[in-house]
Design a protein around this nucleic acid. Structure first.
Length: 557
RNA sequence: GGCCCAUUGGAGAAGCGGUUUAACUCGGUGCCCUCUCAAGGCAUUAUUCAUGGGUUCGAAUCCCGUAUGGGUCACCA
């Protein structure tokens, strides 16, 4: 008696009784307004958040938000060998820290999933995949393959020797020709096998597909009988993508351009199921210049510390700075928009796929620094104090202790020349703060051994300046008038009130008021550079200033 | 190697057949301002769009070839 496909399907999937139609009923089409995009971020839990992944997730998130759609998170944990425990949750948490929060999907190990299209973890979806595979077997579009790794290596060697395209296709697809009898026999005998898709494509024919960022693409049809179910029973990426994005209602797939070349596979898969394929947006990959070759290459987790988002977090870059930088890579008009809409939330940005460049952008640290610096400069003192503290508690004990010692003082320091139309721009990242403010701490100040006075001003003059200053520090004056005090003091000691006057007749003066201020600055801060002296003095307070000045005076006797 | 994608300055880029002697941002350089610093102001940084042909009255913009760079060819995603 002749065997049937039904026998084969039932032998492989005895427990599967559902049909594709049942699944369609269980996961109905989403009811969303016209133009709403359903996007997703679907990483595999194999490591920490990569800068490129953040970029991809951010784009998916932005598109969904802008169109009133849905952004969800799916965990692609079908490769047990590469899985690193705990990284799925880490990914979710880090993304959330950046404000990229999913509307539905996997929310982390301890939290329940959100959404009606789950489970959102691929290892929990095997029953669903099996229904579809059984359907494909019944339709004659999938078959078991018993070729071992060794067989495949051999096949590849032959193909390479003959200079033909390697792979499992056409007449090279040995197992596609196996008789049903043979297939049943070998499965019953317990031979390991995978399930392959039976391609009907022809590489010599092309088809046209529209990519959201690249426009119309003409690609050859797929003719590879790709593996859809591995011998461990889990699906491959290609197949999981087909099933998941169909039943989860994804209508816009954003992914790295490395997927472009498997597009023909995905197109044929969707066609074989009679499903409408989602729109694809193949995003450029963030690149870096390789120091050795001088060529561009993908940001590499091993070679580039910038590849791990955690690097920027540890360095103390504000998350908003990173997000903004990534968005300017995505759409170069982002900055312009940001300037025109300074109060808008980044999610309101009218992101456009077509404005995206098609080749990978080089990661440019100076640009990130600039964006970050400006972001920090325009934060309120209160906000930056809070954010810096949040960072310091995790990564910089010195700063955390400094803040804890006197939170109000810290906020006042952060406020120096901040509340004005063109604020100071001292910091690129939170880690820049402590080195610049530590001198406020008396203990740190006291550790400075040799005060870096300018030799131009003699020790005797230094002393005279400091003594004069100690008598009247002018702290009750306003910021605008305070410097007059320095000028007057200098004038009494033979210093010109301004650089101009000094330059007009250098022989008539010992220096100018800037030199006078410098002596005070060095004495009080231990450094030649500081923000506005007046503001520094106000925060230090008369007692501490006097203590420092006296300490210096003692060394000048 | 086959196939696919890309190519405007140091970086991100705008540009979509004629108001382009290539916008804007970052970086570099110079000058200025300033109590130092962080900034800020002004100027400068591609006569040319990888390259060679072609189409056109006219091309960075359209077509073809070449070069270069990237991606991909797994029971990884």
């Amino acid at each position: 008696m002749a065997h049937t496909l039904q026998e084969l399907a039932d032998l492989i999937f005895p427990q599967v009784s559902e049909t594709v139609a049942d699944l369609e009923a269980r996961y109905p089409r989403r009811q969303l307004p016209e133009g709403a995009m359903v996007t997703r971020f679907a990483p595999s839990p194999t490591g920490f958040l990569h800068t490129g992944s953040l970029f991809t997730a951010l784009v998916a998130y932005t598109v969904a938000k802008r169109t009133g759609g849905v952004y969800f998170f799916r965990l692609e944990d079908t490769d047990q060998k590469r899985e690193v425990a705990g990284t799925g949750d880490q990914l979710v948490d880090q993304l959330a820290w950046f404000g990229v929060v999913q509307d539905e999907g996997y929310m982390g190990a301890d939290r329940p999933e959100k959404g009606a299209y789950g489970p959102y973890v691929q290892s929990k979806r095997q029953a669903i995949y099996d229904v579809v595979i059984k359907h494909l077997i019944l339709a004659g579009r999938a078959y078991p393959c018993f070729c071992s790794k060794h067989d495949l290596d051999e096949l590849r060697a032959v193909q390479e020797a003959n200079k033909v395209v390697p792979g499992y296709y056409g007449s090279y697809a040995r197992c596609r020709k196996l008789s049903l009898t043979e297939q049943l026999r070998r499965i019953r005998a317990g031979e390991p096998y995978v399930i392959r898709f039976r391609s009907e494509g022809d590489v010599n024919r092309t088809f046209v597909i529209r990519d959201l960022v690249r426009g119309a693409l003409t690609l050859p049809e797929n003719d590879q009988d790709i593996v859809i179910r591995k011998s461990d029973g889990l699906p491959t990426y290609h197949f999981a993508h087909l099933v998941d994005d169909h039943f989860m209602g994804t209508n816009c797939v954003t992914r790295g351009e490395e997927w472009l070349s498997s597009l023909p596979i995905h197109a044929e898969l969707f066609k074989a199921m009679g499903w409408e394929a989602p729109q694809y947006a193949h995003l450029p990959v963030i690149m870096v210049n390789d120091a050795e070759t001088g060529n561009k290459r993908k940001l590499s987790k091993r070679k580039d510390r910038e590849a791990a988002v955690s690097y920027f977090i540890e360095q103390g870059y504000p998350k908003e700075g990173i997000i903004r930088y990534l968005l300017t890579i995505a759409n170069s008009n982002f900055e312009e928009w940001m300037r025109a809409n300074p109060r808008a939330d980044v999610s309101e940005f009218p992101f456009s796929f077509s404005k995206m460049s098609r080749d990978g952008a080089l990661f440019d640290l100076p640009k990130l620094n600039d964006i970050s610096q400006n972001y920090l400069a325009y934060m309120s003192a209160r906000d930056i104090a809070r954010a810096a503290n949040e960072w310091a508690v995790r990564f910089c004990p010195e700063l955390a202790a400094f803040i804890a010692a006197d939170p109000e003082r810290f906020e006042a320091i952060m406020n120096i020349e901040r509340d004005q139309p063109k604020p100071r721009k001292d910091y690129v990242k939170y880690s820049d703060i402590y080195p610049k403010v530590a001198f406020f701490d008396p203990a740190v100040y006291d550790r400075v051994e040799n005060l870096p006075f300018d030799e131009k001003v003699s020790p005797a003059d230094r002393r005279a300046i400091l003594e004069g200053f100690a008598q009247d520090m002018g702290l009750e004056r306003t910021a605008d008038t305070w410097f007059g005090l320095v000028k007057d003091l200098g004038a009494r000691l033979g210093f010109a009130p301004s650089m101009k006057e000094y330059k007009a007749d250098p022989s008539a003066f010992k220096g100018f008021s800037g030199d006078v201020a410098s002596v005070i600055r060095v004495a009080v801060t231990g450094s030649r550079n500081s923000p506005s002296l007046y503001h520094v003095l106000k925060i230090l307070g008369a007692d501490e200033i006097r203590r420092r000045v006296n300490r210096v005076l003692a060394t000048l006797r």
